[in-house]
Design a protein around this nucleic acid. Sequence first.
RNA 1: GGAGAGAUGGCUGAGCGGUCGAAAGCGCCCGCCUGCUAAGCGGGUAAGUCGGGCCAAACCCGGCUUCCCGGGUUCGAAUCCCGGUCUCUCCGCCA
Length: 426
Amino acid sequence: MLDRQRIRENPGRIRDASARKGSDAPLDEFISLDAERRASLTELESQRAEMNRASKSIGLLVAEGKNEEAATVKRQAKALKDAVASGDDRLREIEARLHEVELLIPNPPHQTVPDGDSAESNVEVESWRSKPEFEFEPRPHWEIGERLGILDFAGGGKISGSGFIVFRGLGARLHRALLNFMLQKHTEAHDYTEVYTPYLVNRDTMTGTGQLPKFEDDMYHMERDDLFLIPTAEVPVTGLHRDSILNGEDLPIYYVASSGCFRREAGAAGKDTRGLLRVHQFDKVELVKFCSPAESYNELETLRKDAASVLEELGLHYRVTLLCAGELGFAAAKCYDLEVWAPGVGAYLEVSSCSNFEDFQARRLNIRYRPVKRAKPKFVHTLNASGVALPRLMAALLETYQKADGSVLIPEALRPFMGVDRIQAD
RNA sequence: GGAGAGAUGGCUGAGCGGUCGAAAGCGCCCGCCUGCUAAGCGGGUAAGUCGGGCCAAACCCGGCUUCCCGGGUUCGAAUCCCGGUCUCUCCGCCA
C-alpha cells in the first residue's frame, strides 16, 4: 500500500512504476475514488459539526431547565441526523471501494532496479567461488537420494500427492541438521532473535504482507475457519508488530524463524518440478528486519550477506542476481536472489530472495515507530530474506558433495549437527 | 464445546446517557530549585484525517473520527441493547 498523497501528487510516476513491473494497477479508478472520497468527507464533516453543536446546546439547555427550547432544538437536530446518516453510508461505500483498489497497486521499484520483463534482464552482481569439478558425471539429487534411501518421493506421493516429499534416516537427520545449523548461525553470529510462529494465519495477516488479495489461488486455505497456511514465515513474523508503534531506540529489530511453508504452486505444474526443486511443503529459515527508512538499503546489503553466509560456510558455489523490475514481486521495491549451483541438475537454484519492501508492508500492517521521543510516528521499513530454503539447499549440497561411489560427504560446518561425516548406502 | 469475568491513552486504572478525548498514578518531555545527583515544585504529554495559517517541512489554529470490532436505541453513547473477536477463570475434551 502506498501513501495516498504520493499517488495523488504524482500519478504519472506511479503509473510508470507499475508499468515497469508489468502490472495493470487500477490507477484511474484510484484517482477518481480518492477525489470523490475527499469531497464527500468534507461535506459530511461540516454536517456532522453542525449536528454536534446542536446536541451540545441541547445538553446545556436541559441543564439550565429550559425544556421547551431544548425540545425545539431537538426537532431540528433530528432532521440533521438523516442527512448525516446518508452521507455516512455514501462515504463508507466509497472508502471500501477505494481500499480494495489501493490494495492492488504494487510497490514501485527502487531507482537502482534495472528495467526488464524476464529473468534475462536480471543482473548478476556477485558470484562466490566457481562450479565444482567432477571426474565423473554428477548425478541429480533425486538419484543420489533414492540410491542412498534418504529421499522417498513415492512415499510422499502415496500419503499426500505429488509435490510432497518424505525424508528418511540420515536424510531426515540432514534436514534437521541444516535447520539447526542455520538457526544457530543467525542467532549467534548475526544476532537475530529466534521466533516460532503459527503456520495458520488469518486473512488480515495474509493481506498485510501482500499475499492477498492478489494471490489467493496460490495459497492453501481452510474454508471453515478462513485461515491460510503460510507460504513463508515472512507472513507471521512481519505481522507480529501489526498495529503498533515501535520505540525508535529498539530499531533495527532482527528476527529469524524456521517454519514449514506451504504453496499450491498453481500454474507451475511441470516446470522444474523434479525432485526437491518445487514442492508443496518445505521448511525454510526466514530472516525478517524492521528498521528506519534511512537504514533500509544498508540493511538490505547486510541481510543478503547474512543469508549468503550459510552457503559459504557449506562451501556451495552461488551467485547473486539483482532482479529486474518485471521479475520483482508485488510488494518489493528491490530484491536480490541468491542462487546456489546444483551440479547434478546443472542449474542455479533460487534459495533466497532478499527484499526491501520499504514502507509498503508497514502501511498495510500499520507498523510505525517514533524516531525520537514525542515525535510523530513514522512507518518502518520491512525487509526479509530466506536464510535459506531447505529442499533446494539440500539438493545442491547432495549434488556438490557426491562422490563417485554414490556416497555424499558432509561438509565440515555441518558435522557437529550430523554426527557423521558421510552418508553412504548400507 | 459449556458457564462466568473482562477489553479505556506508552503503561496501571477511574468513569457507567450531555461540558469526557476521557480523573488519578506511573513513565516520558520542558522549566524552576539545588555545588553535582537524587528528591521537591510548576507545566506539558494519544492517534488518524480534512481544512486553514505560507509553497514544502517543523509548528500553530479549527473541524471530524477513534474508549476491542460491527450493528441498534437516542437530539446526544466509553456509558444502554444485540451480534462478533480476543483475553482470563472454572468445567468438559485432548497431545
